[in-house]
């Protein structure tokens, strides 16, 4: 059996190597802002995947943290003139606090109720963002300065910004990988697979769930913060339930519970949206069709299917 899962891991390792090469080459081939947007969504989805993929918790309100992060980073950079890195950290901190409140309420119920509660609470965060004075309502926060990193690196230069975003992206992905492969991640997976047994073994499952929720929220907030610096804009779009649906889509399509799934999903979804913006076809309809097809035929997602194929081939040969 170990050879089979080794083969699956090998596939993902190859994917990581290809991804790293592509990350270096991308700004010279593609439009840098496009790749940076992609990294934001990939990190957002990786944070979301930490919950659903390893904790079995489907949050339908993750836009609350992504959007909160976006507003806070924008506010910190524009109004307070904070360093870009500090702005992103502030975004992550704000999302952590939001995540603590939302998570503490949501983990009081399980399964479908958990999803409905996160959705409802994120809608509440949306209404607060709509009415709060500092978010700029329908206009959002515009003209956010990218600033000078450590007062030295000018992030208005596209390649500088690209390097900054790549660094945060890689750090975030590493954090997710580290959490998943830590004893904490093992227990989280055990809770997902059999909560009653985890309780009987003496684990305080609520604390594990809440910790996972907060880590996930913090990373989602960082992703949102980076996005608002990249686009120099924080707006209501990033805090709507549609955005929560989008991160579910990215993860489902790429592969729930795989390390690279969120990245692959983000590449496809962001590229698709860019393309669909040029043709007159309704994006939600395509999104909906992908959801339906994924659920009916393709529940492992792209990376999940690849892993499955590799491990089946290995176990046939072995």
């Amino acid at each position: 059996m170990s050879t089979a899962s080794d083969a699956a891991d090998r596939i993902e390792r190859i994917g990581i190597a290809v991804g790293l090469v592509a990350l270096v080459a991308a700004p010279f081939v593609l439009y840098p802002v496009f790749v940076m947007k992609l990294m934001c969504f990939a990190l957002f989805a990786a944070a979301f995947n930490l919950l659903i993929g390893y904790g079995g918790l489907l949050s339908f309100g993750h836009a609350a943290f992504f959007g909160t992060g976006g507003y806070l980073a924008a506010h910190a950079a524009k109004v307070w003139g904070l360093d870009p890195l500090l702005s992103v950290l502030f975004a992550a901190f704000g999302a952590t606090v939001t995540g603590l409140v939302v998570g503490a309420l949501a983990i009081r119920r399980k399964g479908i109720y958990f999803s409905m509660i996160t959705l409802a609470l994120s809608q509440m965060v949306f209404f607060v963002a709509l009415q709060a004075p500092f978010t700029g309502g329908e206009d959002g926060i515009q003209g956010v300065p990218r600033g000078m990193l450590f007062g030295v690196f000018d992030l208005d230069k596209p390649l500088m910004m690209y390097a900054f975003v790549s660094a945060i992206f890689l750090l975030g992905m590493f954090a997710v990988w580290r959490v998943v492969h830590s004893p904490f991640g093992q227990i989280l997976t055990a809770i997902r697979d059999n909560e009653a047994r985890a309780i009987s073994l003496g684990y305080d499952v609520d604390r594990y769930k809440l910790t996972a929720f907060v880590i996930s929220a913090a990373l989602a907030g960082a992703a949102g913060g980076v996005k608002s610096l990249v686009f120099q804009l924080a707006s209501l779009t990033d805090i709507t339930w549609q955005m929560s649906g989008e991160v579910v889509l990215i993860t489902l399509l790429g592969g729930i519970g795989t390390l690279l799934g969120p990245v692959v999903g983000a590449i496809i979804v962001v590229a698709m949206q860019n393309y669909l913006a040029t043709v007159n076809f309704p994006v939600p309809v395509i999104t909906g069709i992908i959801f339906v097809v994924c659920v009916l035929l393709f529940r492992r997602g792209i990376v999940g299917e690849l892993r499955h194929w590799a491990s089946r081939r290995a176990s046939h040969e072995g």
Binding site: P284, T287, I289, F291
Partner: peptide, 8 residues
């Protein structure tokens, strides 16, 4: 997830 897709 399926009914969410149908709604969209």
């Amino acid at each position: 997830l399926l009914t969410f897709g149908l709604a969209l």
